[in-house]
Simulated scan of single mutants.
Amino acid sequence: MRITARGIGLLVAAVVLAGAGFRFAYPELTLLGVAAGGAVAVATVTAARRPRLEVRRKAHPDRVSRGDPASMTVTVRNAGRWGAANLLATDRCGDQVVPVPVLRLRPGTDTVVRYDVPTVRRGVVPVGPLRVTRRDPLGLVVLARSYGDSVPVWVHPRIHPLSAVPTGAGRSLDGRVDAVPHGSITFDSLREYVVGDELRRVHWRTSARVGELMVRENVDTSLPRIVVLLDNRVAAHPNRVDGVAESFEAACEAAASVVAAAVREDLPVVLLFVAAPESGVAEDDGAVGPLDRLAAVALSAEGTVQQAAARLRRDRLGDTLVVLTGPGGREDLGHVGALRGAYPSVVVGVFGAAEPTPPGAAGLVVVDAADGAAFAAEWDGVRRW
């Protein structure tokens, strides 16, 4: 609740008039002071009366690619039994404020507002809550309340079609790298026997040597596994205009394009970030799938490529590694090149660099591109995975 300048002036006048009336024995001044104070008190009670409003939202759609149209429908219902709601209401949509008419809204009736959600930038656009401002008839007191929840609209990066998808490779037990045209089950590791394991999977020679039952763990190498590493460090994307790094936006579009191509071909794909998830990815805000994570990811000052490479070398999540970075990330290509032993195919995309990457940098396949569309064109021209 906030007292307006008019209300403050009237309250000060009430104190002065009442004080002067008592001090100099002028009952007329005292009466005026009491009346002014009573007006402020009545205004406070009037503004404090909470209207019963029900707010419903519906996004059309709630997930959209950058630049595609999206809208929000807000329905406000007067759930009170008497008295029409005569309020000033606004809805917050990202950085915009949208007026919602709630004037003379009778009990049991509702008003519907539909407006466009801005999708010119990738990100998560929070819509709501509804902000209702109530004033007294004299304009002495203003009280603002929030109604309804905030609904996110996920603006995904733009997806550029990729016709070429890495075929991948499977690693056999003796360390050789073999192409896998057909499905196969390959030995991966040994672990202790637990109740429920099939006895045919027991490795008897190792069990006799260690003195307890050991079971073979196998992996299916029938499909290539693609790992996409997005460099979301501030140092990798130093060029920013109005706080937006176009090289990072292009890298997000490339990551979305690779993920969409892998999903189209029913290939397993993993999306990772150089910086830790808590540095910019709102995974606890309803994010579902890699495209939502790409919509929510932001640049971070934390994390290094060396740490990310160490995690990738330890986990070995796939056989094809796609690293997407900016002009500031070319200094760390040596750490990426060291992963060729763990990942048979390594492709690097560099965005926004003033000059092309020297040929054969760290022995990697490097795709230089200005934006996501240029990356898609260059990607389809790569013949050496």
Rank of each mutant, 00 (worst) to 15 (best):
G196S: 00
R191S: 07
A164W: 03
P161S: 13
A164E: 12
I185C: 11
T133Q: 13
L190K: 01
A164T: 13
D188K: 11
A164P: 01
V113N: 08
W154Y: 02
D174T: 08
V155K: 04
R134Y: 03
P129D: 05
V117R: 08
I185D: 14
A169S: 15
T133V: 13
T133Y: 03
Y193M: 06
G175A: 11
V151C: 00
D174K: 00
T186L: 14
D149E: 14
V117Q: 07
V155Y: 08
F187W: 14
G123F: 03
D174C: 00
V165K: 04
L173E: 14
I185L: 15
P118E: 06
R158W: 09
R121W: 11
G183D: 15
E192T: 12
D136F: 09
V194F: 01
F187S: 10
T119N: 11
P129I: 06
V153M: 05
L140F: 14
L173A: 15
R122G: 01
G196R: 00
L162M: 08
V194R: 15
Y115P: 05
D149R: 14
V142W: 00
V127E: 04
L173Y: 12
R158C: 02
G175L: 11
L138D: 00
R200N: 12
L173I: 14
R131M: 13
R134N: 13
P152H: 07
I159D: 05
G148L: 01
A164D: 06
I159E: 11
D136L: 10
V151W: 06
V132M: 04
V125D: 08
P129K: 06
R121Q: 15
T133W: 03
L138N: 00
V195A: 14
V194M: 05
G168Y: 06
D116F: 09
V127R: 04
S146R: 15
D116C: 03
V180Y: 09
L162K: 06
T133F: 01
R114D: 10
P118I: 02
R122A: 03
V142L: 07
D149Q: 12
D188T: 02
V125L: 10
D178H: 14
G148T: 00
L143A: 02
Y115C: 12
V165G: 06
G139Q: 02
R200V: 11
D136T: 09
V132N: 02
R171N: 06
V127N: 12
H182P: 00
L199V: 03
V141C: 11
P161V: 13
V117E: 09
V141L: 11
P157C: 06
P118K: 00
L138W: 09
V142Q: 04
W154F: 03
P126K: 00
S184L: 13
I159Q: 10
S184F: 04
R135F: 14
